[in-house]
Design a binder for these strands. Structure first.
Length: 417
DNA sequence: CGAGAGGTCATAC
DNA sequence: CTAACGGTATGACCTCTCG
């Protein structure tokens, strides 16, 4: 039985949402109509483009470019700082509206989702009518435009929503693949990234059509299993289901931050590790999981990234335990080169249904967990700034490190939406 | 030789 | 008037080690 799948994608999400909020607060200028971006702060070395308006795009400005490059391309560019709270709210409102059209929704990122319309055909309008209705309602009620891709599976719906923007509905059914998708450059294909594309071009594969018609065993030879994946995608083959639980389980939680200066002292590095451990720990506890592996990342001022990880003998959950492991790994990994970025990540495990008894379970650990739970509750109730560890009383390091992401981002924030 | 640990790479948004 | 390069998650795969 043929399915009907929608992929809904907000046009210039962060920028649109920021623009709408500004208009709602009486601002006269619509950021969407001028060359503008949502951008980080270069002073903190976070200076990249997170989202761009369509006029800005016409200057050649691209997501993830540095602000310096962006200004070079368009000297009168307007840049506004990101406001994640607003984007999260807008996203929630969108997903809520979309749920009226089908209970089967997969939130893919903060501004994108898949919707299985298959069983709704009889209840509501035809798929195309429904797609236009969704688009119109989002604009009328929430003030921003989206692209809707309509097809019989997820990959094709996703490819379709990427066609001409903004404010469009596109179909890409099986019989349209040859005409609409195969002429496109191979880099436009979902999952064909820089490295794969480079290899494909080397062998004269430049369009999606050429990829679709090339030899599968050869692709597997040069790209391993990824070759088969993109071969299938190029042929419109994808049997994954909307909202497949496989993809919604949280497998790891991490935090990393580019620091506004190069860290050269152990003391400073430790403070950042504690701050990162705190935010990771809070999130870990919020989803009621425990950690079985701790990973740390160091990026040097020369952009060289290295990681070190340790599988733990016992699962852990408190900030202090995460910090302890992070610090240990740091001491093993750090070669004293100036540090630009530090990261802490934990691989999660399901919380044990009942308390596991162990030789090593001691009063101190239970105390730590109690302390963390109390801190989490206080912060939940009164805000993150209500309490902080004494280490952070003086100095420039924030007690909790928050994430910064681009509009295309937020894979793991799904659960919060 | 197979399993597990650790490390790197690629990809997405 | 123009500012120097993000953050998070996942999976594949390679290598090493150990029994």
């Amino acid at each position: 039985m043929n399915k009907i799948i929608f992929h809904i994608d907000v046009n210039s999400a962060f920028l649109s949402w920021d623009a709408v909020d500004r208009l709602n607060h009486g601002e006269k200028i619509d950021l969407r109509k001028i060359p503008s971006i949502v951008g980080g702060n270069p002073i903190n070395r976070h200076g990249i483009v997170l989202a761009k308006s369509i006029p800005a795009k016409k200057y050649g400005i691209k997501t993830a470019q540095t602000l310096v490059e962006a200004y070079r391309l368009c000297p009168n560019l307007v840049s506004v700082p990101p406001r994640y709270h607003i984007y999260t709210k807008a996203s929630r409102a969108m997903m809520k509206l979309l749920r009226e059209y089908s209970p089967n929704i997969e939130i893919y990122s903060i501004d994108e989702c898949f919707l299985d319309y298959t069983n709704m055909k009889k209840l509501f309008a035809s798929p195309i009518e429904a797609a236009y209705m969704i688009k119109k309602r989002l604009y009328d009620e929430l003030g921003f435009t989206v692209n809707v891709g309509v097809s019989s599976n997820k990959i094709l719906a996703k490819m379709a929503s990427d066609f001409l923007k903004p404010d469009r509905v596109h179909t890409l059914f099986i019989d349209e693949i040859e005409e609409k998708m195969w002429p496109l450059d191979v880099s436009k294909l979902f999952m064909a990234g820089r490295s794969s594309v480079k290899k494909l071009r080397k062998y004269g594969i430049n369009t999606i059509g050429e990829l679709a018609k090339s030899d599968l065993s050869f692709l597997k030879h040069i790209l391993k299993s990824h070759g088969e994946l993109i071969y299938n995608f190029a042929n419109g083959i994808d049997d994954s289901k909307v909202g497949d639980l496989k993809y919604s389980l949280i497998k790891s939680i991490g935090n990393s931050t580019t620091i506004s200066y190069d860290v050269t002292s152990e003391e400073d590095a430790y403070k950042y590790l504690l701050s990162l451990s705190e935010s990771v720990g809070m999130r870990l506890r919020a989803v009621e999981k425990r950690a079985k592996v701790v990973v740390i990342t160091i990026k040097t001022n020369e952009f060289i990234v290295s990681q070190k990880q340790k599988k733990l003998f016992e699962t852990i959950v408190s900030t202090n335990e995460i910090y302890r492991e992070a610090k240990r790994l740091f001491d093993l990994l750090w070669d004293k080169k100036p540090i630009r970025l530090l990261g802490v990540r934990v691989v999660t495990t399901e919380k044990e249904p009942f308390k596991q008894l162990s030789f090593f379970e001691n009063k101190k650990e239970i105390k730590l967990e109690k302390l963390d739970n109390t801190l989490d509750e206080l912060r939940e109730k009164y805000g993150k700034d209500i309490i902080l560890r004494a280490t952070f009383l003086r100095g420039k390091v924030k007690p909790i490190t928050g994430g910064v992401s681009s509009e295309d981002d937020y894979p793991k924030m799904r659960s919060q939406l």
